[in-house]
Design a protein around this nucleic acid. Structure first.
Length: 117
RNA sequence: CGAGUGGGUCGAGCGAUCGCCUGUCUUUUCCGCAUGGAAAAGAUGGGAGGAAAGUCCGAACUCCAGAGGGCAGAGCGCUGGGUAACCCCCAGGUGCCGUGAGGCAACGGAAAGUGCCACAGAAAACAGACCGCCGAAGUUUUCCCGUUUAUGCGGGAAAACAGGCAAGGGUGAAAAGGUAGUGUAAGAGACUACCGCACAGGGUGGCGACACCCUGUGGCACGGCAAACCCCGCUCGGAGAAAGACCAAGUAGGGAAGCAUCCACCCUAAGGGGUGGGCAGAUGGCCCGUCUGAUGCUUCCGGGUAGGUCGCAAGAGGCACCCAGCAAUGGGUGUCCCAGAUAAAUGAUCGCUCUCGACAGAAUUCGGCUUACAGACCCACUCGCUUC
RNA sequence: UGGGGGAUCGUCUAAUGGCAGGACGAUGGGCUCUGGACCCAUUAGUCUAGGUUCGAAUCCUAGUCCCCCAG
């Protein structure tokens, strides 16, 4: 538990550059969960970073896509400690449409714990 | 009470905790000679829509191109007004629809020209004749009557032909006015009356589209399609914020200026000069016209990618009141500052209330249009029923 | 975000504004001892909604979906 009470979500913990995304895509490990494709690769920053990708085919309108991004980011923010020091890219699959916060939390935390072990 | 028409407003709300984007102020630290810049913490303010959407119009803004001329192309199309502008809005006219409140209209020209109008039908655009009607006058044949010796002549009837007609039938999306009468062999604007229509002239009202009235002419000519070509009138240079401006790693080498420089022929001893021609590019549609040239040598030093900063949030701005106007809208006064990201900000959890929550997320900015949408409320009006 | 193009049977592709045609496929039948090939027949379509027109795949308006280009 490196960040026991820190649940902030500043720009530092987001993957923001195209080159950084590319690095994760090239070096990262890929894991599939029912609703997401997840890529992750270790970094040497001492804290995790996240990038979320939601394609047009997941949800046809912008409101739906924003909704999924917000849910995923919220899960990450509340559980940053579980991600140790990794760059994580989460890609939403087509079946994400009716996803709720609780479903996403269960699924992503389940993945994070497996990865840590 | 029911059904409906037109217009407008809103688009779940409140509280707590954790979190995101951003403006301002304060403090601290660091950098800098300094104006100032960066980071952190705290305080405080703001934080998606009526359509933010589609990208269908119109602009602002930016860059590119602009000697000039012609052709082509695109858009618009009743009238007057509004506007920065518009394919928008308001008011009005005309036509059509609706019992009505009201709604809808690409609504210039078909007597400038060209083209098209399948099938059906007789005929589809300087009309035409299938069935049908007529067949008087004309021709032929037959029959009857009169007369005559007889041919014949006269009269009548029937049939056929030549011919006449366009009223009725039928076809079609569309068939060249309607009603009544006269007329005739049958009919027909052939003629007459009334209605309708077209054209010309004049008057009245209106800025005008146009409306109404009067007079005359025409028996009616001028079918439809211009969201077919086209004609007439008006408008239009191209691209778009991934526009564009500035700063600028790494890697790779590029750019500008000057001189010589393509092919053929002619002149010349040579150097070189002249004439003609071709190719490619620019002039973001094409043509004429105009301009430029590959490569080598010499000299000079910038251009640009990742990334960053700006553009980028005070505006044809919102709200309130007053004035002008039927209105769209304009003018004045006061007041407010109200998203500004860049892998891209509004979410999660809990509690409460209700009608149990639709369509949907700013990306340069405005003005419109169009499309999507659970519902709630307000104003004005229409029709029907019932009661007083 | 901006710009451009397209949509016709299951697939590919034709059609001066006048009955939507062809190929491949599918289904059924014939031929054959059986299958293939071949022959015959059938099936099924103008992306959607309005408008112009007598009549629309075609012309006009709005919408839906797909593809391409620009970092």
């Amino acid at each position: 538990m490196t960040f026991p009470s820190d649940s902030s979500f500043s720009k530092d913990v987001r993957i923001r550059r195209n080159s950084e995304f590319k690095e994760v895509f090239e070096k990262g490990t890929r894991i599939r969960t029912p609703h997401f494709n997840v890529l992750y690769s270790p970094n040497n920053l001492g804290f995790p970073r996240i990038g979320v990708i939601v394609g047009k085919k997941t949800s046809l309108n912008a409101v739906g896509r924003n909704r999924i991004k917000r849910i995923v980011r919220e899960v990450f923010r509340k559980n940053k400690a579980s991600f140790d020091s990794f760059d994580v890219v989460i890609i939403a699959k087509k079946n994400c449409k009716g996803l709720t916060y609780k479903n996403a939390e269960e699924e992503i935390l389940g993945f994070a714990e497996k990865k840590l072990s």
